[in-house]
Design a protein around this nucleic acid. Structure first.
Lengths: 252, 252
DNA sequence: TTACACGTTGACGCTGCGTAAAGGTCAAAC
DNA sequence: GTTTGACCTTTACGCAGCGTCAACGTGTAA
């Protein structure tokens, strides 16, 4: 039984292009080439192709498959085990991803529902207004409308529970920061705890977190008078202290 | 605060190439280009990049991200839900894949264990020897060493349980085939059951199954005198009958 | 002989960048 | 004033695994 590309392709359920490609990369060479230059495959090639497709379905790269098939002493069990581990990692990643997407959808839908019900609109509006009053116009000019709007949007999507959590976190942060400041050591345990709390607090506002951005924000707390005053309210120098603590924190 | 490519890249943890690419595809354009042609990004762009990276981490394609970001009315919840479904499908596929790889590893290891312990070596060697005696050299010449070797390899990996199952299946096949032959109808229920049993039996030897290959083998049973004699042993014409039954069976 | 289905090689396209190559710009050091 | 070195620019190939033309030869049935 001999097959041309199309015949073999139909038999195995792959395209002729695939067969030509496998020929090209030396994965599956035809038994012979006839006088017209046609690729002719025999039974051996059918079997080999079956093996190839089997491994391919397992998700192995064609190069790995070639290694396995070309070297009869190749440790196919080990290859499969390696591959298995890769798949498990992939699965873990995927599960994380799915959880994140679900969280995002939920957040989105809560946002919509809440907007519809205008449920906590009162306190949120108040919060936004306060925000505006505090840092309002100048910040808006300095950092762009988008940033402020996005931040406000995120506030709107927040549930009462999340708001409680946020407030609690902020309180804990200020308390810890105050205590830490008294120690005078930005690298100390207390200061590092404050930095961590600040990160947590920040993550309520930021959709994604990076050490660099965190550090950048900390510097801004010092550079921008309004933020500085906010932090230095009780103990002058706290803004700098927080910046230094965050600098240490983000260096690990 | 203005950023050049590298500054922004460091801030966000992406390469300069990525930023240039995002510019190229219109996903993130710099705020302005300075007199030397440098890309200059502002705060708005930092925020936009954060959003982009957020969606990217969720595994969305850059084009989708662009759609979401460029059109403020874009239904991002729907986009996320579509994406979510895709991920679930992917997960299902992956789980299937993992199960298959595990099965393969198990099969392989059983084979190795058995080879190490030389446990059922006796009956397997005998089986292979019989195979060789029966169809040996000529088949090997006709269909290539590989096919025969692979078949033998597969026999070696078989467990005692599997061998039992195989024998039982073969007995059932011959019995059913005998009964079916008496009806004289290759399209009848009995003949079709025989064809199905033959497929099952075949799948012990073949790593993958295709209707065409099955049909091809059935034809070979008729063409090759050795196979023909084997099937016609009790009732002459059985090989043809089986071929016809399989032909009908594989037409559905 | 004319169609028409089949075969061939060659080459570009897709994603999301990595990685040169070949060259301009800018600040600091000599 | 110039040289160094770290920036920046555009252009373009490379990756995996084929899909999809294009341009052209073959085989066979009408």
């Amino acid at each position: 039984m001999e097959y041309t590309v199309q015949k073999l392709g139909q038999l195995a359920g792959v395209s002729t292009r695939t067969l030509r490609y496998y020929d090209e990369i030396g994965l599956l060479k035809p038994a012979r080439i006839n006088s017209s230059g046609y690729r002719i495959y025999g039974q051996q090639e059918v079997n080999r192709l079956q093996q190839i497709l089997f491994y391919r379905e397992l998700g192995l790269h064609l190069e790995k498959i070639r290694d396995i098939m070309n070297d009869p002493d190749f440790d196919s069990t080990k290859a499969l085990k390696d591959h298995h581990e890769n798949l498990l990692n992939k699965k873990e990643q995927l599960d994380l991803l799915i959880a994140n997407v679900e969280k995002s959808i939920a957040a989105n839908e809560r946002g919509i529902t809440m907007t519809d019900q205008e449920k906590f609109e009162g306190f949120k509006e108040k919060l936004i207004e306060e925000n505006e009053k505090l840092y309002g116009k100048e910040i808006r000019e300095k950092y762009g409308q988008d940033a402020v709007n996005r931040s406000n949007d995120k506030l709107k999507r927040m549930t009462a529970h999340e708001h409680e959590e946020l407030t609690r976190l902020a309180d804990e942060l200020y308390e810890t920061l105050g205590e830490a400041f008294k120690t005078g050591d930005p690298a100390g345990d207390l200061a590092q705890k404050a930095a961590e709390l600040h990160k947590k607090w920040l993550c309520f506002y930021w959709d994604s977190y990076s050490k660099e951005a965190h550090r950048g924000l900390a510097q801004m707390y010092v550079d921008d008078e309004r933020f500085k005053q906010h932090y230095d309210k009780n103990q002058p120098g706290t803004a700098e202290f927080l910046r230094d603590a965050i600098h240490v924190y983000t260096s690990n």
